[in-house]
């Protein structure tokens, strides 16, 4: 079984991803800018990434799962903490079970990450899942 790393995913904004999404939600550019997870170096090493190696990962929890590209964080070490851009990909993992304030946990997503062989999840797959 592939090594699994438990993380809390915090979503964030990015100007390049935002611009791509405004032009088209269905473009390869928007997919490439959105379908990413930024992981701590130590966590990436646990998943088997060698220096400079591109890795795709499965990010899953009770709500759903997506395959995205893994990127190395440039920030101070933050094992167990991961970042994703706010997008249809990150929202596949956000629960609609809300707290008293009724705000979904967009910035506190508990998930498990493992190395993946599959292709990055396409927007058409996300649409099909929503349609059910």
């Amino acid at each position: 079984m592939a090594t699994e790393v438990e993380v809390t995913v915090v979503t964030m904004r990015d100007i390049f991803q935002d611009e791509a999404g405004r032009k088209s939600r269905f473009s390869d550019e928007y997919r490439d800018q959105s379908a990413q997870i930024i992981l701590d170096k130590q966590d990436l090493a646990k998943l088997g990434a060698k220096d400079g190696q591109k890795l795709r990962v499965l990010v899953k929890n009770d709500v759903g799962s997506v395959v995205v590209a893994a990127k190395t964080s440039e920030d101070n070490p933050h094992p167990g903490l991961a970042f994703m851009y706010n997008s249809p990909w990150s929202n596949q993992l956000v629960s609609d079970a809300v707290s008293e304030s009724s705000i979904p946990g967009f910035k506190s997503i508990k998930a498990i990450v493992s190395a993946a062989e599959e292709k990055v999840t396409q927007i058409s797959e996300i649409q099909a899942r929503i349609k059910g």
Partner: peptide, 11 residues
């Protein structure tokens, strides 16, 4: 469908 949780989009 893009911006809210999966369950909300699904509903």
């Amino acid at each position: 469908f893009s911006a809210l949780p999966f369950g909300t989009a699904r509903a």
